[in-house]
């Protein structure tokens, strides 16, 4: 494209939807043609596949800035059955994911960082479309990529940091090792659709858990774009499953599914978080709620990431074995 023509498209190279006029590459001919763009059908990510809600329901979002589908877009509105199905997939995937070597999980997380980096411009555009400023979006994407790299390098270290050899007073070799908890249900932060999601789920999968997450419903398209990155990374299907929908409707099902072993939930809705805490008692779930967390917290490497996130992602198992002839 020639420079003069670029003014008609947005900085990322997309043109606006339906009625927009696109000038052909062969500008010298100065032929004006109409080309109808192809809006994407946005789908949720479950078991490594992109799916609609079994319920057939959808909700609509409108982009805040110019973009290919700035017009109203239909997003799957996940139902409790979608959650149930995703749980089944996550459960099935968990033992295999945990059985991979920590080195391998680290490689896969690093691969995700590579994919995110390669698609960083797309993420910036997506966040801008979702309402962020250019600068905010660029910061968020950079932080999300860096956080992925951070956990990529943690997969084969958390064992060394969290485990212990226990000098018991007897003829036994006793040691404690961290083990994944199982399937986490995650309510990702509404703000920071990319960084919030990454901050929440990556330490969990880093430690060998699998996840069913509800992404931000303020900017579900960024959430789904992230899933597309996941799908092209080396993550096996089912390890990370992401639903789009309403927290208030879906999250209460977290505590009505006995296989949900643990919950990480971010929300500004204190009552919803208390409901999750209360409901967690029936299965003694490990539930961590985060109320009204400020944006800066996610960007702060000392608070928004770290070993503490991995500690919440594991159980400690102490193993004893005699030492003798």
């Amino acid at each position: 494209m020639k420079k003069t023509q670029e003014k008609q498209v947005n900085p990322a190279g997309f043109v606006r939807g339906g009625a927009e006029i696109v000038k052909a590459e062969r500008a010298e001919e100065n032929v004006v043609t109409h080309r109808l763009s192809i809006p994407k059908a946005w789908k949720m990510y479950v078991g490594g596949a992109f799916v609609r809600s079994e319920s057939g329901r959808y909700f609509q979002v409108v982009g805040a800035t110019e973009s290919a589908d700035a017009t109203t877009t239909n997003i799957p509105l996940a139902s409790r059955k979608d959650f149930r199905d995703a749980m089944g997939v996550a459960q099935a995937a968990q033992p295999k994911w945990a059985a991979r070597t920590a080195y391998n999980r680290g490689q896969i997380l690093y691969r995700l960082a590579e994919i995110l980096e390669a698609r960083s411009e797309e993420f910036v555009r997506s966040l801008v479309r979702g309402g962020a400023t250019e600068a905010e979006a660029a910061l968020e994407v950079a932080a999300a990529i860096d956080r992925s790299v951070y956990y990529a390098g943690f997969a084969d270290k958390l064992g060394a940091l969290l485990a212990s050899s226990n000098p018991v007073a007897g003829p036994h070799f006793a040691f404690t090792v961290p083990e994944p908890i199982g399937v986490f249900a995650v309510l990702a932060p509404q703000k920071l659709p990319l960084l919030g999601l990454v901050t929440t789920i990556l330490p969990l999968v880093c430690a060998g858990n699998t996840v069913v997450a509800i992404g931000s419903d303020l900017d579900p398209r960024t959430v789904i774009t992230f899933c597309e990155a996941l799908a092209t990374s080396d993550f096996p299907g089912g390890v990370i499953n992401v639903l789009t929908g309403r927290a208030k409707e879906l999250a209460p099902w977290f505590v009505k599914h006995r296989e949900v072993r643990a919950i990480e939930a971010y929300s500004d809705d204190a009552a919803l978080l208390t409901e999750l805490e209360r409901g967690s008692a029936d299965a003694v779930r490990r539930t961590k709620t985060h109320h009204a967390v400020a944006r800066e917290w996610f960007f702060d490497d000392r608070r928004g990431q770290g070993l503490g996130f991995l500690e919440r992602a594991v159980e400690h198992k102490s193993i004893w074995h005699p030492v003798g002839l």
Binding site: N166, V168, G170, H172, A174, H316, W320
Partner: peptide
Amino acid sequence: KFDATSPFG
């Protein structure tokens, strides 16, 4: 077997 040095739970 129990020991103060060995996490239990």
